[in-house]
């Protein structure tokens, strides 16, 4: 599979020259499977830019099908949806999986985003594409876009965010953004989900100091991410969801610190990438 980053920023888009290299768009990652199927994880503003690419292919002709995995529905993970050009094209089909008690509750959350007070779209019914909603069963494997997926909820401030494990042909990619662990660290169940991942994308919102003073927000520091990668014996760690106030230079420094932390914890063999908008990793 090929993983591509369309938005790597947390909380709110951060335009400006100081974010040009890593990018200022909010969370959105795509996966192209070996059979060329498409999986989208989270729908931050990066989704618009993915959509602008998709329009040129089968999605532009109304023949596209994609799986959408939603970690949770904070604005920075859904705000690109009304600007996803291919969702207006009849014939396209999207299967949206998210964290809700029922599929209709998940639909209701995205419907609220289109409310006429806030959006000129008024209702999801005005989107041309066919959208099916699925409430994810925690821990239960399911098949989508021809690959095996499992999801479990992580603590995220006063709420939870799903982490996803996507497996294809013996390779595994884990997406774990927006997570603030208790002092005891990730639960055994979460570590089981992360275990041995070839690629572990992990929330890396903060420096250690910023994480300490903002613990209630439910995000991780680079040190939390490094510790999780070592404990779960991940092969490669991807840093993601940088604070909106962090410049490119600061993210560079975060990556260097994260490398040191991995090494200090005995994870010298674990690869490290700070996710940057527009780049891809092949697995």
């Amino acid at each position: 599979m090929r993983i591509t980053f369309w938005g790597v920023r947390g909380s709110i888009p951060a335009p400006g020259p100081e974010t040009n290299r890593y990018g200022g768009n909010t969370s959105c990652v795509s996966i192209r499977t070996r059979t060329d199927e498409l999986i989208i994880i989270d729908m931050g503003t990066g989704l618009m830019h993915l959509g602008n690419k998709l329009v040129k292919g089968e999605f532009g002709r109304g023949q596209g099908v994609a799986t959408v995995l939603l970690s949770h529905c904070h604005w920075d993970h859904i705000q690109g949806f009304p600007f996803f050009p291919v969702v207006f094209i009849p014939g396209n089909r999207f299967n949206v999986y998210g964290n809700a008690k029922s599929s209709s509750m998940l639909e209701g959350i995205l419907e609220g985003q289109m409310n006429p007070h806030f959006s000129p779209i008024y209702t999801l019914k005005n989107l041309g594409a066919t959208i099916d909603f699925h409430a994810v069963e925690h821990g239960e494997p399911f098949e989508a876009s021809g690959v095996r997926i499992r999801a479990r909820p992580n603590p995220h401030g006063v709420t939870t965010a799903l982490a996803f494990r996507v497996e294809e042909a013996g390779k595994s990619f884990v997406y774990a953004s927006d997570v603030g662990y208790p002092d005891s660290g990730p639960s055994a169940e979460m570590l089981e989900l992360y275990r041995g991942a070839d690629l572990l994308l992990h929330d890396c919102t903060y420096t250690i100091d910023d994480q300490m003073t903002r613990r209630n927000r439910g995000f991780s520091s680079y040190a939390d991410a490094a510790s999780v990668a070592v404990t779960a014996q991940a092969k490669h760690l991807i840093m993601f969801h940088y604070d909106q106030d962090y410049s490119d230079d600061k993210v560079d420094a975060l990556r260097d610190e994260c490398r040191k932390e991995l090494d200090r914890l005995g994870g010298e063999s674990i690869g490290l990438t700070a996710a940057a908008e527009g780049t891809s990793i092949d697995l």
């Binding site: 888009p13 400006g16 040009n20 503003t45």
Partner: peptide, 16 residues
């Protein structure tokens, strides 16, 4: 900017 924020080098001068 209208409609949605647009970060990136192509909007550095007017702003995103």
């Amino acid at each position: 900017r209208g409609s949605i924020p647009v970060p990136g080098p192509q909007t550095n001068r007017y702003g995103g």
